[in-house]
Each structure stands twice: as C-alpha cells, then as structure tokens.
Design a protein around this nucleic acid. Sequence first.
RNA 1: GUGGGUGUAGCUCAGUUGGUUAGAGCGCCGGAUUGUGGAUCCGGAGGUCGCGGGUUCGAAACCCGUCAUCCACCCCA
Length: 422
Amino acid sequence: MDIIKGIKGVKDLLPEETPRWRFIEETARRWALLYGFREIRVPIFEVTSLFARSIGASTDIVEKEMYTFQDRDGTSLTLRPEGTAGTVRAYIEHNRAADPLPQKYFYSGPMFRHERPQAGRLRQFNQFGVESFGMADPRADVEVIALLWRILSDLQLPGLTLEINNLGSATDREAYRPHLVTYLQRITDALCGNCRRRVDSNPLRVLDCKVPDCRSATEAAPRLAEMLSNEAQLYFRAVVTGLEAVGIPYYMNHRLVRGLDYYCLTTFEVTSTSLGAQNAVGAGGRYDGLVQTLGGPPTPAVGFALGLERMALMLPESVLTSAQRPVSIYIAGFGTHGSPAGFSALEELRRAGILAISDFRATSLKSHLRQADRLGATFTLIIGDDEVVTGSGILRDMHTKVQRDIPLTSLIPQISSLIGAC
RNA sequence: GUGGGUGUAGCUCAGUUGGUUAGAGCGCCGGAUUGUGGAUCCGGAGGUCGCGGGUUCGAAACCCGUCAUCCACCCCA
C-alpha cells in the first residue's frame, strides 16, 4: 500500500521547530497589542467573489493562484490567499463602523496560493497582519510601519531594508496612466514579453519588473510622483517626516508597486538580503477605497502582512536560546509493585501542575535513567518494589546526582517546594 | 505554467571503469555479574537503492519515461 504523503507545497512543523514559531508569533502579537491592536479571527475560506472584488480580478493571485472549489449548493468558495479581504468583510458585516473609530485589528494564520514552491514560498503559508481602520492620517501609516519595523527588529532579523512609495489616489493614477502608457508604447521593443502584455493590463507593474532591460528602458519614464495631487504629496511628506521623527530608516523606491489592486497613497515593503529570491518579509500600504468597494461606508485604512515562514527562515538561533527548559520530573516506576505505584505518582504530580514524564517501555532502572537523561529531566523519582515496601521514593537530582527519600504519601508538597527552589 | 539540480537506513551521506549477501557516521533498542543516566566497548533492529520500463550473462550505477523534492523564472508575504 502506498504511503499517503503531504500535499505539494504544504509543510509539517515538527516539535523541534514549533518553539521558534511560537517565539515569532508571540513577539508579533506582543508588539501589536502594545500598539493597541486587537486580535480578530476570521474564516480561512470565503465566497470567491470577495477576493476577486478586493484583490483585483486581473491580479495573478485571482487569475491563477487561488484554491477555489464548489460548495455542495454550487456556490464558489476559495481558501483565503491573504488576510485583508476577510477582515474587511467581517468589519462590514458586523457593522463595526457604527462603533467608535478607530479600530485596529491583527490576525495570524494560514493563507493559500497555488504557486510553484520555492525557497520562502509555500502553497499553505502563514501571515501575521494588521489592519487599522478609520484614520486618514499620516500618523496612522507611520504607526503601522513602526509596528512592522519594531517586530522585525526585536527578532533581530538580518539584512532588512524598508522601502516606501507613494501611489497617490486612484484619480492620480488614472491621470498618470495614459502618460505612462504612451511612453511604454514607444519603447515596447525594449520590454520583456511579460511587460508588453502589462502595458495594457497593468502598466504600473512594468516599473516593478526585475528584468534589467526593462528597468533601464523605464528609467526615463514619467514618474507618478511628479503627477500627484497636492494632497497626496503633502500626505506622503507627512508620512516620511513621521518615520524620521520616530527613527525608522527607509528608502524611497518610486518603482515599488504592490501586487494588489486596492492600495493607494503609502505603500511599503521590507526585504531581506539573507532570504533568496523571495526576499519580501513584510509589506503593506493604505487602502482607503476597499471598505467601500466591498459595500461598507467610506473608511480609510492601512495595514501590512508579514510572512511568518520567511521570518522563521531568518530568525537567528541565538535569539531563541534564551528560552529555558522547564523543570520536569521523570518517574522511574519498575517492578511488579513499583510500576503501578509510579504510574499513580505520575498522574498525581500532573494534577498538581508539575511537568511529569515517563517511558512505559522501560523495565529496568537503568533504562529509565537513560530515558530521563535523554528527555532532559531535572529530577527522577525512583519507585521500585523496595520503595513501595518502605513507602518512600527516591528523588534524584539529575545534575548533581544528589538523592533523597520522599514519603510517597507527601509527594506533592515535598516536590513542589523543591521545584520552587529551582 | 517554464527551466535546472537532486532522489541509497529515521537523519547526513559513501558506493571505485556495471560484478557476488548494499555500507559508514549519527540516532534507536539491548548488553558489559545482582536496582542508578551521560563516556567507552560490544551486539542488534532497520533499506522494494523514488517508481515503471529498457540495455546486459549481470544495474544502486547506463538509456527512456514517470513521480517527488529543492532552486530559479513568474509572482508574492
């Protein structure tokens, strides 16, 4: 019979690696709470049209990367490819706009995109993200970027760069678009095949193309920055000075165009040189129109998403070693009477809130101690037939090898006081 | 969707120009006189050599196909 294997691009996190994940998730969560964000948990699947409407029908994600399937009644459902759409849907559906603004949420969980797996890219991957609703204020942008930067810095992730850009308002881009398109059409021969198609479908993305020829060809292209409205320019300037005021280092990148349609004004991306080809660790931006697009009241919003797999790849081992192993007791119960007595003691200790472990395969004291050593137990409680007769077990400190007798009838108080001293 | 690399024990890998029962290290289990771990020594378990064809007297090795995985393109967190 063939062994059933996991799905391509989907990974198991084994017990050896979960601590580093918990560490990452907990620091992100801690900082988000510190910045006044509250956790929201939304479903991992939604009606397909939610993503088509929010992310943009002509984006790669919607066109070819979504896990879409039919529900029994025929409605089209999709495993979420990102977290913002569902969060906004929940915000609208529960009429959160009627509650006092601003409202700041964070989420963490799996996302799904059908892409070819690669270093730092999986089909099921995890994102930690935040969404800040209700403030059309540059300080809201700065706050979100600062939070992003604080999380990454706290984790000591190496080689980070924050890049920002101003996408202006939708009308700014509408005005800019024809200028860019005429320019691109003139130089179309110099563009890669992909970009030639983009000239019509999504001309802004041509600027973000990695092909060197495309980059040099678009070097002289008209810049969006030069055609932005006064408001957009002022707004962005305020974001930039805000970043400087709170000491967040950034680089301007006028080519930075995010892959999701809903962004406007501020966009940003943090990349790392220590990652590989998929070097974006976190990214986000402002999306003032999205809530309205999805049927809610006009609501300004900013947010970001972090790729947890990529953070896990980068997290230095040294950051993690600070976590200490908890005090634990191994129960070595052996012999016809010691064995059951040991099992009772095991349960008794656990009910008292003490980390107690054993290996039921071990039949000799020797094999028990070997297990205790391997499992890194702080103490071993030895209960053989002799101990059952005398009514007192032997507690061995695995480090100092010091042993002492402990009456089996008063295990909990004796052991608790010892553990308290550790 | 496209390209390239790699598939031998739980893990990391050897395996000479095709040649007999496929190896090592680590890990795992056990033992080294009677109830005391880590070190050392000894022993043991564990492999359809990814899978399917083909060439050959003979294939882990050569050829074809296929699958898996990794990396890159694309795109993104």
